[in-house]
């Protein structure tokens, strides 16, 4: 599988936050979800890929090329959508298009206008008069109008209503049908990703917890429930993460469901974990699950 993005040993120290030794390989032609709680390092990772933040150490290569040495060539092939609007609010959609379009060699006005029509965007309206959803649609229209092979989206669904979130996900799903695109999509709204992502990278406290195919993840992780007395068994607790104890017993996450099934089959109950469960339990406590 040809990687479109490779990150090796990436480090970045910011005020009160440290992205530590991040290693990632993103395969081509997939929708890759970067998940994690707020402040986990998702935006920092994306900003480092885009060279908006300067890395302290490590290597980032996009399309097999160093992301700084070949910055211009690489960015010709990247479309971006950020969580907030950073285009020129005092200008209209069309005026913003006139500023952005000439930067791209493969800009296609026809494609842009097709998206404008599809998204019902008012060309002459100033950005400051548009809703958050409309601004995101505009950013998406720009990102998709220059034949970008890699679309990088940082929390594009945050602050959007469920109808537009669904619409956005449908657009992305449609985009993937030609196998030419790869989408990197960071979010803390995991239900969005369960619908469309093929590959998930989970970042917590500045570290990559895992990076794997969605089906493998959902197959691997389980929510375990049982009696409190079982927590006295250290072999058992070593397989748990984010243990919550309540008056009825305990709940935790495990990535070793087969082992637990073998040894403690009759004493625990296991359910499939959602991505939300995985984030919640992992963020709560460091375990060995």
């Amino acid at each position: 599988m040809e990687p479109i993005l490779e990150i090796n040993g990436l480090n970045k120290q910011l005020d009160g936050f440290h992205l530590q030794d991040v290693n990632l390989v993103v395969p081509k032609g997939y929708i890759i979800g970067i998940i994690g709680p707020n402040g986990a390092g998702k935006t920092t990772t994306i900003k480092l890929i885009m060279n908006l933040l300067r890395k302290d150490s490590g290597e980032i290569s996009v399309f097999g090329q160093d992301h700084i040495q070949f910055e211009k060539e690489i960015k010709q092939r990247i479309g971006f959508v950020y969580d907030e609007n950073h285009f020129y609010e005092q200008l209209s959609i069309d005026e913003n298009r006139r500023i952005i379009a000439p930067f791209y060699e493969n800009w296609d006005n026809q494609v842009f206008h097709d998206y404008v029509k599809k998204f019902d965007l008012p060309l002459r309206k100033k950005l400051k008069d548009l809703s958050h959803g409309m601004k995101t649609k505009f950013a998406l229209a720009l990102a998709l109008s220059h034949q970008a092979e890699l679309i990088i989206m940082d929390e594009p669904t945050s602050g959007l209503d469920p109808v537009f979130r669904r619409e956005l996900l449908d657009i992305l799903a449609g985009l993937m049908q030609d196998d030419k695109h790869t989408v990197i999509f960071s979010t803390h709204i995991t239900s969005d990703l369960e619908r469309i992502a093929d590959y998930i990278c989970f970042i917590n406290q500045g570290q990559v917890v895992f990076c794997d195919i969605m089906d493998n993840i959902l197959e691997k992780y389980r929510v375990v429930k049982g009696e409190r007395a079982m927590l006295a068994n250290q072999t058992f607790t070593a397989m748990l993460s984010g243990v919550i104890v309540n008056q009825y017993g305990f709940e935790a996450l495990t990535g070793q469901s087969t082992n637990i099934q073998k040894s403690f089959k009759d004493r625990v109950m296991m359910e499939k974990a959602t991505l939300d469960d995985i984030i919640l339990y992992t963020a709560r406590g460091n375990g060995n699950a």
Partner: peptide, 15 residues
């Protein structure tokens, strides 16, 4: 400055 548009500029193919 108004919209922190440097983020857009440096995401475009420019050095």
């Amino acid at each position: 400055l108004k919209n922190n548009s440097d983020l857009v500029l440096l995401s475009l193919p420019v050095k």
